[in-house]
Amino acid sequence: MSNTVIVIDDSIFLIKQIVDFFEKQLNFQVVATGNDGNDAVELYKKYKPDLITLDITMPNKDGIEALREILSTDPDAKVLMISAVRGSAMLECMDEGAKGYVEKPLKFNDSEFVKDFKESIKDIFCN
């Protein structure tokens, strides 16, 4: 049975790309998608996926806040941050309990990027 994932990003354009990647390259089942932190928390509680990806800069509720809420309800949640934010945000997310961090831009045409992305997912499920 394939792993399940929820994809959260405020860009529909990027959601399509990420969903495509998880379904075609990783054989994951995308059970839901959402556009802000509120969606993330609600959808996580509803579907309890094997993995949830979170953008950071989103309207209504940002990704770091959503990360905290998800982990408060399920400390074992596997959360992968996918963001263009640089600097201390990455460390902050990892300190909060995120299992991985992928920096945008998402260069799905770049084999090195795809390899690194897949390695990140593998690490999350192996550790």
Binding site: S11, L14, R86, G87, P105
Partner: peptide
């Protein structure tokens, strides 16, 4: 939506 992501990408690359 795409224009917004383009801006986000420019910002990220500038920070790199």
């Amino acid at each position: 939506d795409i224009l917004g992501e383009f801006a986000n990408t420019y910002w990220a690359l500038l920070m790199d």
